[in-house]
Computed example of a mutant assay.
Amino acid sequence: MLTAINREHDVVVYGATGFVGALTAAYLARHAPEGVRFALAGRSADKLAATRATLPAAAREWPLVVADSGDPVALAALAASTRVLATTVGPYARYGLPVVEACSPATA
């Protein structure tokens, strides 16, 4: 049986300050259905704010989440805050595994 879990965000774009992340966020701001709760995530609050300022108007109030791929606690909090975590952080072989681990913690 599936149960609904309340999350702060529906979709988080992790790596939003990079080239692909910014393009992804811009696309979502233009095309996502109204009412979807988005957030932008990355290592730097200043860079996230600068990126958000360049996005279409629909994204101007999206929350910013600071999380470094080298910080398991921050990644776990990020994963727990959202239903979907879209990562554009690369190189994926180096930085992707900690994100996957945060999204699918081992069960005891």
Rank of each mutant, 00 (worst) to 15 (best):
G15M: 06
A45K: 13
T87E: 01
R30E: 15
T82D: 02
G42W: 01
V84P: 06
A77T: 08
A50R: 13
S44Y: 08
T17K: 02
T88Y: 03
G15V: 01
S81P: 14
H9K: 11
V12C: 05
Y27M: 11
E61A: 15
S69P: 00
A49I: 12
G18V: 05
T3S: 09
L55R: 01
H9I: 06
G90T: 01
A26L: 11
R30L: 13
L64H: 08
A49C: 14
E8R: 15
T54R: 09
A22V: 05
D10H: 15
D71Q: 08
T54H: 03
A93V: 14
G35R: 13
R83P: 04
A57D: 14
R30C: 11
V66W: 09
L40T: 02
L40H: 03
W62D: 01
G90H: 02
H9C: 07
G21S: 10
R37W: 06
Y92I: 05
L64W: 07
V89A: 04
A93C: 11
R43T: 10
I5F: 13
A79H: 06
S81H: 14
G35F: 08
G21A: 08
T88M: 10
T3Y: 10
A57V: 14
A25V: 06
V11Y: 02
D68E: 12
Y27F: 10
A25Y: 14
A57C: 08
A25H: 03
S69Q: 07
R60P: 11
R43G: 04
A22G: 08
A93S: 09
V20I: 13
L75A: 09
F38Q: 00
L85M: 06
V66M: 13
F19Y: 14
A80N: 12
L85S: 01
A32F: 05
A79P: 02
A59C: 15
R60W: 11
P72M: 09
A53V: 07
A93F: 15
V20A: 13
K47Q: 15
L23N: 13
A39D: 00
V13Y: 02
L85A: 05
R7V: 09
L40G: 02
A50K: 12
V89N: 00
A32P: 03
A93I: 09
L40S: 03
R37P: 03
V65F: 08
A45T: 10
T17W: 02
V20M: 15
N6Q: 15
L64M: 09
L64K: 02
T17I: 10
A76Y: 06
I5G: 08
R83K: 11
T88V: 07
A53L: 07
L64A: 04
A67L: 10
L85I: 07
T82Y: 05
P63A: 10
V66P: 00
Y27V: 07
A25D: 01
A49G: 12
L55W: 02
G21P: 00
V89I: 10
A16K: 01
H31N: 14
A67V: 06
P33H: 10
V13E: 03
A59Q: 03
T54W: 05
F38D: 01
L75C: 07
T51P: 01
A86E: 04
A29D: 03
A86C: 09
V89D: 02
T24S: 09
V73S: 10
T87P: 00
A45F: 10
G90A: 03
V65E: 02
G42R: 00
G21R: 00
S44C: 06
G70E: 11
A74K: 04
R60Q: 15
T24Q: 04
